[in-house]
Design a protein around this nucleic acid. Structure first.
Lengths: 156, 156
DNA sequence: TCAGATACTTTGTCTATCGAAGGAAACAAT
DNA sequence: ATTGTTTCCTTCGATAGACAAAGTATCTGA
C-alpha cells in the first residue's frame, strides 16, 4: 500500500538530483541550465527562430528574447534577420557556442550513463520500458522532452 | 545502444512534467511550488526554524528569509522568537497555512497515483524497484527528498 | 489594398536564488 | 567574568528566469 509513496519519493529524489546539478553547472561552467537548453536547441541545426525555441522550451517569446539577449552578450549566438520572412530572427550559434555545447560538464548524466551501462542487458531494457511508462503517466500531452535534463546529449 | 538515450529522454519528460505542473499550481492555487515545499516542512511539526527549512530545502538562509517573508505576507505562517534559543526564530504555521496545505490541488501526483493504482500488482512492485534504483543512480549523497515533487503528500 | 495574424522586442513586475555584511545570542576557554 | 568564536537570522544588492501587456514590423488572405 505504500508502494505509491515510495515510488513518489524515488521520483522526488530523481528530480531533486537534476535540480542540484543545475546549480553546479552554473557555478562550474558559467552557463545556466536554461541557457544551455536554449543553446542546445539552437545548436541542433546551427540556428533557430525565437518562436521555435519558445515552443520547444514551452516558455513565452518574451522569455526567449531575454534568454537570447544573455546568450548574445556571452557571444554564444548571434541574431540575424531572416531572409525569407523578415519578421523572423534567426538565432545562430557561434563557434564559442558550439564549444560550450561540446565541453559542458555533465556529471549527472555521466553518473546515470555509467551505472546504466553496468546493468545487465535485460535490466536495461526493463528500466527503459519502466521510465517510458512513468513518463507517459506524468505528461499528458506529447511533450518535447529535450529542454529538460539540462545537460546535453550523451557522450558515449 | 540507444536504450540509454531513450531512458534519458523519458527522464526528461518526467522532470518536465513536474516543472510545468509547478507553473500551473502557481496560477491556480496562488502559491508557488517552492513556497508550498517550505510550508510543507513547517507544517510537519507545525513549526520549524529557518535553519531547518534551509537545510532541508538545500537553499541559503537568505532565501529562506525571503520565502518566509512571502508566507507571512500571505498569512500562511508567523514568526516567533524561540524561547529556548533566542537566536532562533520559530516559523509557525497558521490556520490558513494548514488550509492551503490540505486543499492545494495536486493534479500531477493524482495522475500518477491514478495510473499507478491501475497497474497490476507485480508491475507496481517492479516500478517501485526501478524508480528507487534510478534515484540511487542519480543522487550521490543521501538527499532529503521531501522538498521536491512540489505537491504534498498523497491523498489516497 | 488593407485588416488581421504573426514574429519579435520592450517594459515593467514577480519569484527564486545567492553572497556578503552585520546584529544578536550562545558557547567556550581562560 | 571577559573575550573570542560560532551560530542563527536578517538586510542589502545582484542576477536569472518567467510572464503579461503593449508596441513595431512584416506577412497574408480576401
Amino acid at each position: 500500500m505504500d508502494r505509491v509513496d515510495n515510488s513518489l519519493i524515488a521520483l522526488r529524489r530523481i528530480i531533486r538530483a537534476t535540480e542540484l546539478y543545475g546549480r553546479d553547472l552554473k557555478q562550474i561552467a558559467g552557463i545556466t541550465a536554461v541557457q544551455f537548453r536554449a543553446l542546445q536547441i539552437i545548436g541542433e541545426k546551427g540556428y533557430a527562430t525565437a518562436k521555435e525555441v519558445s515552443t520547444r522550451m514551452r516558455v513565452s517569446q518574451a522569455t526567449v528574447t531575454s534568454l537570447v539577449d544573455k546568450l548574445v552578450r556571452e557571444n554564444m549566438v548571434t541574431r540575424e534577420k531572416s531572409e525569407t520572412d523578415r519578421r523572423q530572427t534567426d538565432i545562430c550559434i557561434t563557434e564559442q557556442g558550439r564549444d560550450t555545447l561540446e565541453n559542458a560538464p555533465d556529471p549527472l548524466q555521466q553518473r546515470f550513463v555509467r551505472k546504466f551501462a553496468a546493468m545487465e542487458d535485460w535490466e536495461q531494457t526493463m528500466l527503459q520500458a519502466m521510465l517510458e511508462r512513468v513518463a507517459s503517466m506524468m505528461d499528458a500531452e506529447d511533450l518535447d522532452a529535450s529542454p529538460v535534463l539540462d545537460t546535453g546529449d550523451i557522450k558515449h
